[in-house]
Amino acid sequence: MGYYVSVEPGVKLYVEDINPEGSKTIVFLHGWPLSHQQFEYQFNVLPHKGFRCIGIDWRGFGKSDKPISGYGFDRLADDIRAVVDALQLDQFTLAGHSTGGAIAIRYMSRHHGYGVSNLVLIDAAAPTGFSSETAARFLNQALNDRPKMMREVTENFFFQYITPPFSEWFLQLGFQAAGWSTAAIIITLRDEKLDSDLPKIHAPTLIVHGVHDKVIPYAQAQDLNRQIKNSQLVPFHYSGHGLFWEEHDKFNKLLRRFIRSTEN
């Protein structure tokens, strides 16, 4: 079921809550410039395995409210904390893809991992995000020709072949966002770094990353693995930046196994 949670006056986030009676909860944070719907191929499977799956659209994206400001990692992490508090979540797995991984890292640091039993970083845009050159190109396109930007994002996202209908679906996920929020996140990815956050992560952490990732290089996953204590890195050899779809069977099984391996 879907509903809205107020995170500050005048701003509500859309939350998709699948199988609320599940015995284990996974909170999914999507990547830029998408929405919770990118995890369709997890939501199809994991609830049937007994998991409660919660997908959150960040402010400015998907079905959430789209204020003109509030797109730094601190505010985005605070938004997640507001949802966690509203739903009274505890002992949940926090799984973030790309920029969602960066938000998850800031949440772990800023909120001391409140309620989180396990962390999963999927092609995470960390500890750095976009280079100045990449950010300048995307920012120019976002402000002048966002459809062209989304086409470039889609073309560079996947290693495996995607059909034209899938490509169109993926493009439409990006168009659900506001133009100003799309641009604001580019600036955040350019300017904010997460190196100082990493030593503050103490939860068991699974790092998964496509070795053919053209958006966030695989070397950054290796860097995360070195800097996050109690972490393990699993490469996805047939994926680019979209392993949640490209190797979704492998990812879904690995995620289930990781969560169960860390149960008390």
Rank of each mutant, 00 (worst) to 15 (best):
M1C: 08
Y3F: 15
Y3M: 10
Y3T: 03
Y4T: 09
V5M: 09
V7F: 13
E8W: 08
E8F: 04
G10F: 11
V11E: 09
K12F: 04
L13H: 07
Y14C: 04
V15Y: 11
V15R: 13
E16G: 04
E21S: 15
F28R: 14
L29T: 06
H30Y: 11
G31V: 12
W32Y: 15
W32T: 07
H36K: 15
E40F: 13
Y41T: 12
Y41E: 08
Y41R: 12
Q42P: 03
N44L: 07
V45L: 08
V45C: 06
L46A: 06
H48Y: 05
K49C: 05
R52V: 09
G55N: 07
F61A: 04
D65K: 05
K66P: 03
D74K: 15
R75I: 15
R81D: 10
T93R: 13
L94G: 01
L94H: 04
A95C: 14
G101E: 05
A102R: 07
A102M: 04
A102Y: 07
I105S: 07
I105K: 03
M108Y: 03
R110N: 12
G113C: 12
Y114R: 09
N118K: 15
L119K: 10
V120Q: 12
D123K: 15
D123L: 10
A125N: 11
P127E: 10
T128M: 02
F130T: 01
S131W: 04
A135M: 10
A136I: 10
L139W: 07
L143F: 01
N144A: 05
V153M: 15
F158K: 06
Q160P: 14
Y161V: 09
T163N: 11
P164N: 04
P165Y: 11
E168G: 00
G174L: 07
A178D: 09
A184H: 02
D191S: 02
K193I: 08
K193P: 03
D195S: 12
S196H: 08
K200Y: 01
I201G: 07
T205V: 02
T205H: 01
H209L: 01
H209E: 00
G210D: 00
K214I: 00
A219I: 12
Q220H: 09
A221S: 06
N225M: 05
R226V: 03
P235C: 01
Y238G: 08
G240L: 09
G240C: 10
G242E: 02
L243Q: 05
E246Y: 06
H248R: 10
H248I: 05
H248N: 11
N252I: 03
I259D: 00
I259T: 05
R260W: 08
S261R: 14
T262I: 05
N264F: 01
